[in-house]
Simulated scan of single mutants.
Amino acid sequence: MKKLIYILIIVAVCLAAMIAAPSLVGDKGYVLIQLGNLVIETSVVALGIMVFVALVCWVIIGMLLSRTMRLTKLSGSWFGNRSRRKTQRAFYRSIQALAEGDWEAATKASDLAENGDFEGVNYLVAAQAAVARGRKDTAIRKLNEATEYDSSALAARVTLARMALAEGQPRDALKELAQLNDKQQASASAVKLKVQALAESGQWAKLEEELGGYKKVLGDDYAKWSKQIAKGRLAEVASKQGAIALKAFWQALPRKQRNDIGYQAAYAEQLLNQGMHQEAQSVLLDWQKRGPHPQLLPLLKNLQLPNPAPTIKALEKWIKADEENQQLYMVLGYVAHHAGDNTLADKALQKAMKLHPTQEGLLLLAEINEKANNRESAMAFYKQSLNVK
C-alpha cells in the first residue's frame, strides 16, 4: 500500500508540473503522435492526464495480479499442508498399530505414509509389520529402502543382519554389516551382531584378532566371547587330535592367552570333556590360589575323582572365609557326591539349601537320600523342588 501511495505522489507531482508549466508561460503545449496511419493530436495537459490514468491502471492491475497469485499460493499451500497432515497421521497410526500388535492396521497405515518425509522410519515400521505377518520379501524390500536414508541405515542393516542370523546365515549377516560406514560399524548393536556372526560362521581366528578392539563396547560380554573363542579353538583341537594334542596346543599358546580367564575356563572344560579330571583339578586349583573365580569355580562341580582331597580342602578354606556363600556349599556337595562321600555331600547341600534353595540342589539331595534308603526325606526334597524354580 505504501508503494502505491509513493507512486501516486510522484505521478501527481509530474502531472502538476506538466500542467503548471504551460500555464505559467501561457501555453498549454501541443503533442503529435503518429503511428503509421494513426495520428494522435493532443495537448500536454491531456497527455499528462492520460499518462496518469494509465499509470494508476497499471498499478491497480499489478496489485490485483499480485494478490491473485498470493491467494493461489496460499490455496496450494493449504492443500499441501492438509496432505502432509494426513500423511503424518497415517505415520503415527502405523507406530501405534505396531505397538498394539495390529499388524494389518500397521501395514495399511505405513502404506499411506510411504510418500512422507520421515527419514526412512516409515519403511522401518512397514518392515516390522511385514516381519510380524511372515512376509519376508516385503520386509527385505522395505528395509533396503530404509537404507537409503542416513539416519535409518544403521537400524535397517542391523535388522537385516538379525534376520540373516535367525535363518542360520551368518555370512549374509556379515555382508549386511559390511555395508555400514565406519561410524555405524562401531556402534554397539553392529559390533555385537558382527561378533555373533563371526562366531556362528566359525571364524574364530578373525574374531580373536578383532575382539580386543571391541572390549569397551562389549563390556561384560567381552569375557564371555573370549571364553567362547577359546572354547571354539580348543574344542576343534580336542575333537580332531585328542587330549595329548590339546595339552600341547595349550602349552604353545602365548602367555597372554594362557593367563586369559576365558581361555583358562575353556581349557579346563575341554580337559574334563576328555576325561582328564586329575589335570583339570590341578589347573583349576592353581588358577584359583587367591580365591574362587566365578568362571572357574562352577567347573569344579564336574570333577569326578575318587579322592578329590585338594579340591575339598580348598573349598573348606574358602567356606571358612565366606560362610554365607551358597555356591561354595553347592560345589562341595557335588565334588563329595561324585567321590562317593554322600555324608559330606548331604551336609554341604543342606547348608546350601538353607542359604538359597534351588531345584538343582533339592533334586540332588533327593537322589542322595533315595540311595541311602531315606525315602521320606527323599520324597520331601522332591516335593520341595516342585515349588522352587
Rank of each mutant, 00 (worst) to 15 (best):
A345P: 13
R157T: 02
G101N: 08
L303Y: 00
Q34G: 09
E367Q: 07
L305Q: 01
I312L: 12
A156S: 09
A280L: 07
L300E: 03
E104Y: 12
G26Q: 12
G62R: 14
E269G: 02
K389L: 15
P22Q: 06
K301C: 04
A243D: 04
R141W: 08
M69F: 14
S189F: 03
D172K: 07
K183Q: 13
D221E: 14
Y222P: 00
K301Y: 04
V331E: 00
S201L: 09
S282I: 03
I319C: 07
P306S: 08
L246E: 01
L154T: 02
Y382L: 10
L386T: 12
G333R: 01
A97I: 00
F79V: 15
A54L: 06
A16Q: 06
C14L: 04
Q281I: 01
L71A: 13
A178H: 02
S75A: 14
Y267P: 09
T147D: 06
Q257P: 08
D27R: 13
D172R: 08
A252G: 11
K383V: 05
A280R: 00
N122L: 10
F249G: 00
E145Y: 04
S23T: 12
L74C: 13
N115S: 13
L332K: 04
K289L: 05
A21P: 02
M50Q: 11
M330D: 03
N115Q: 12
R135Y: 12
Q359H: 07
G291T: 09
E210N: 10
L47K: 05
K313R: 10
A197P: 06
T159P: 08
L315C: 08
K247I: 11
L253M: 09
I140L: 08
I61N: 05
Q359S: 14
W58A: 14
A90N: 08
D182L: 09
K192F: 04
L299K: 07
L218S: 06
K240D: 08
E210Q: 13
L315S: 04
R84D: 11
T72V: 15
A161V: 02
S83T: 13
E324P: 05
L207T: 01
Q326N: 07
L32K: 14
V237M: 09
Q270C: 04
